[in-house]
Design a protein around this nucleic acid. Structure first.
Lengths: 327, 327
DNA sequence: TTGTGATGATTAAACGATTAATCAAGGATT
DNA sequence: AATCCTTGATTAATCGTTTAATCATCACAA
């Protein structure tokens, strides 16, 4: 591996001059700069990450802690983070919380050992990760004493509900699968908020058992708002098995815009989180904190957007009538 | 941050002694070892990654290059790799090939700049990644001049076909969505190989257009073997829209055991790659190569396994009769 | 008593880059 | 002509760890 020392020796100058020439600091004549850069390029010189990190105290690496890499939402996040980090000259080291709080804290410890400059944390729900000795950005739901950026799950819920209202639906099922998840609770609350006074609705959690869609449809339900695309997929296919057509008999909306949402027929309408923007803000904060800026960006919330596809349609006339006559 | 120097100063010994005591090398008395380790623990000492990397020439970090983090197959890989790497004391730095060959080579360059000890590469199909100055393990389809470990896609295809034969199906559609993908080609070839002489079959690629399942079913096709769960999902739901029941009228098998395969109704039968084993072998090879072992593990192929779920069933009697009478 | 060896610790150099401090030399100012 | 400033380069120290080489002590054998 070529080093500054080697370049210096070959050119008969000092290492300091080489360093100055390459970094643009200090005072070096135009000629020498050209000579050095030329030789560096010719030798394929790459500054040693270790050497630089040792001297500057910064590794240029950020750690990413996720509760479960396997969850289909995370690839999108990871991608956005990698792009943003790269744009600012950082690399991303992944760590696995392994689903437990202990694993999560251990992951932080591992990252610190490896000398990361900052940590991006997607905390396991209900945990308070230990405070690391480096800046940390939390991507989560609840506002945090430390910096946090979050998707506006409640607003996303409202968006889904408003779409369904606009299509004329007046009896809606709100469906979650984990009544303990703050994210899901926020999404459902947003839906309920927008539906309040505009339509009948009921909330169900599949934790115990999956609702009987045929029954519900018989009582007038024409739309199901779910907290995730996986759940929406379940609804669409379960409905199909019960002889219900989607969106003719039942409109469905999911969350997160997973790849599957365009692979299933009908394609799934979904509420899509702006992962790119979330990543951008998290990295921007970390970068500012690491560089010790006076005013790093403040914690913030990012709105979600609606993508209508084939799983939603106007409320069926018959069902609407049924609802009107049933009470 | 506490350093060996600080411990040495506080204890009135030399840094070398501290280093020796902590690493177990050199000659240090039992007493001093205890003293040093105690003080280190008390101070919360963590060896500086940069310092160590600079001296030893090894960063303890592996780079992972993937063509597209967003693809649903990769999280599983990444997870397996992270676990295996961690077990051997390595961290994993992610890089994004951004789908292009140039991006892929650039990713390698970035990783080298960051001082990784080795690279795990999942190459974009049809590309030959540049040879980096560190060991590289390729997880792919084709055998490679360098080390490579691959899932046995052909055997996976046979597995799917054999399962369908055993269920009595005698007319099968093999469905891919990218006729250029070596992985898909291998899978389809494996299916064809096992079906040859045992059943009628035809191959179709959805690149151009999606096949009319009702038509096919009318001509006697009772099973569809696809190259991915996403495609299987498409088939199952498309069939349902055409009024075909799965598995009653049509059996379907996918590939990769994606999370969606248990969320859809019917749940998807699938061929599952042993990502844990693939990861294990890739990391084992890299570790050996980095430590300059005499005989690093040889390139190898890992068999896939079959997981039968609800999307497959016995061939319908009527359809079988239909096929027998139709020619 | 004088070597000989083992033991436990220290010294010093090295990894590669950065940076403050220093120095030499020439040009401009008074 | 003496002084001052600017320019372009070098010296030397430093980051934290590892490791070969050295050294001092003490025990033991000849």
């Amino acid at each position: 591996m070529p080093s500054q020392k080697q370049i210096a020796r070959e050119l008969g100058v000092s290492v300091a001059t080489v360093s100055n020439a390459l970094t643009g600091k200090g005072r070096v004549s135009r000629d020498v700069v050209d000579l050095v850069t030329a030789r560096a390029a010719q030798l394929g010189y790459t500054p040693s990450a270790a050497g630089r990190a040792l001297k500057t105290g910064r590794s240029g690496i950020l750690g990413l802690v996720m509760p479960d890499i396997t969850h289909p939402v995370f690839p999108d996040f990871a991608q956005g983070l990698e792009i943003e980090a790269d744009a600012r000259g950082y690399g991303i080291l992944i760590a696995n919380g392994r689903g437990t709080e202990a694993g999560q804290d251990n992951a932080i410890k591992q990252l610190i050992k490896r000398g990361v400059d900052g940590i991006i944390m997607i905390p396991r729900r209900g945990t308070r990760p230990q405070v690391p000795p480096v800046p940390m950005a939390t991507i989560s739901i609840a506002s945090d004493p430390r910096f946090a950026v979050a998707a506006n799950h409640r607003q996303g819920g409202r968006l889904a509900a408003q779409a369904i209202l606009q299509l004329g639906h007046r009896s809606v099922l709100l469906l979650g699968d984990d009544s303990q998840s703050p994210v899901q609770i926020d999404r459902i609350e947003g839906m309920a908020e927008a539906l309040e006074g505009q339509a009948e609705f009921q909330v169900q959690w599949t934790g115990d058992c999956f609702p009987d869609l045929a029954d519900l449809h018989a009582t007038g339900v024409t739309a199901v708002l779910t907290v995730s695309d996986l759940l929406a997929l379940r609804v669409v296919t379960e409905a199909s098995q019960s002889g219900l057509r989607c969106p003719d008999d039942l409109s469905v909306i999911g969350f997160d815009n997973l790849p599957l949402s365009t692979a299933v027929r009908p394609t799934l309408s979904t509420i899509v989180p702006d992962t790119a923007e979330l990543a951008k803000r998290a990295i921007a904060y970390l970068d500012a904190a690491i560089r010790d800026d006076q005013d790093p960006p403040a914690p913030s919330v990012v709105d979600m957007t609606l993508r209508l596809r084939d799983s939603t349609g106007p409320a069926p006339q018959t069902a609407t009538q049924h609802r009107r006559t049933s009470p």
